[in-house]
C-alpha cells in the first residue's frame, strides 16, 4: 500500500523527503561505490518480485517484501527501495510524486531494521535461517503497516479511523508475507547460501571472507 498525493499535510511530505534523503545518503555510503550499478540491477529484480500477486480468498494481495529486501541487501536496501519507488512513481504509472519521501521511509526503514535483525540472529543452520527469515518477513510488513498508520495519523483526527482500518487490513498480508519469506530464505539457504550474506555491504564481505 502506498500513500497517494494530497493525503499527507505538507510538513509530513517535506519532512519525509528530508529524512529519506538523509537515510539514502547514509545507505549509499554503506555501499561500496563500485557496487552501485549492481545494486541498481538487483533493485530491478526486487521490483519485479514485488509485482507478484498471491491469491487471498476472493481477492489477491501483492507482496511488499521489505523484510526480504533488507535481509538480502542489508543497509543498501534503503537506497534500493527508494530507487524502486522512484521508478514506480515516475515510469510505471503509480503516482505519489509528493509522497515519495514518506513512502520511501515507510518501506525503507523496516527493511534496514529487518536486515540488521536477520544478519544478527540468522545463525548457521538452514532451518534457523528460514525461521528467522519468516519472522523478519512478517515483521517488515508489520512495521510498514505501522508506519503507514502513523503517517496517515499526521493528517489529523480525520484520518485516524482510516489508519486503524489500514492496520487491520494488513494482518492477512503480514501472515502471508511471513510464510513466503520463510520459504524463500529456506530456498536460498539450500540453493545459494552466499546471497544471505548481505552482499553489498563492505563489512560483511570482509568478515565472511
Amino acid at each position: 500500500m502506498h500513500i497517494s498525493d494530497g493525503v499527507l499535510p505538507t510538513y509530513a511530505t517535506v519532512g519525509g523527503y528530508v529524512v529519506s534523503a538523509a537515510l539514502t545518503a547514509w545507505s549509499a555510503r554503506k555501499t561500496r561505490s563500485q557496487d552501485l550499478p549492481k545494486l541498481a540491477v538487483v533493485t530491478a529484480a526486487f521490483f519485479v518480485a514485488s509485482l507478484i500477486h498471491v491469491p487471498l480468498g476472493p481477492t489477491s494481495a501483492h507482496l511488499l517484501i521489505p523484510g526480504l529486501t533488507g535481509a538480502l541487501l542489508g543497509p543498501p536496501a534503503f537506497l534500493s527501495i527508494g530507487l524502486g519507488l522512484l521508478l514506480q512513481s515516475f515510469l510505471f504509472q503509480f503516482g505519489g510524486l509528493t509522497a515519495l519521501g514518506a513512502n520511501t521511509l515507510m518501506m525503507g526503514l523496516p527493511a534496514v531494521i529487518c536486515g540488521w535483525i536477520f544478519q544478527r540472529y540468522k545463525g548457521r543452520t538452514q532451518k534457523r535461517q528460514a525461521i528467522v527469515g519468516g519472522l523478519v518477513g512478517a515483521l517488515g510488513t508489520a512495521m510498514a503497516a505501522i508506519f503507514l498508520a502513523l503517517l496517515l495519523g499526521t493528517g489529523g483526527e480525520d484520518f485516524l479511523g482510516m489508519a486503524k482500518l489500514a492496520l487491520l487490513a494488513h494482518i492477512p498480508v503480514i501472515i502471508i508475507e511471513g510464510i513466503v519469506s520463510a520459504f524463500t530464505i529456506g530456498f536460498l539457504a539450500r540453493v545459494k547460501p552466499d546471497l544471505l550474506r548481505a552482499a553489498f555491504t563492505p563489512a560483511s564481505r570482509e568478515t565472511d571472507g
Binding site: 529484480a45 491469491p55 517484501i65 526480504l68 520463510a182 530456498f187
Partner: peptide, 23 residues
C-alpha cells in the same frame, strides 16, 4: 494459484529463483 500453503511455497520458490538468477 490457490489460497493454500502449497501456493505460498511455490511462490517462494519462484521468488528465490528470480533472486538467484538476477544476482
Amino acid at each position: 494459484k490457490r489460497t493454500d500453503l502449497y501456493t505460498l511455497y511455490a511462490v517462494a520458490g519462484f521468488l528465490g529463483m528470480l533472486f538467484v538468477r538476477s544476482f
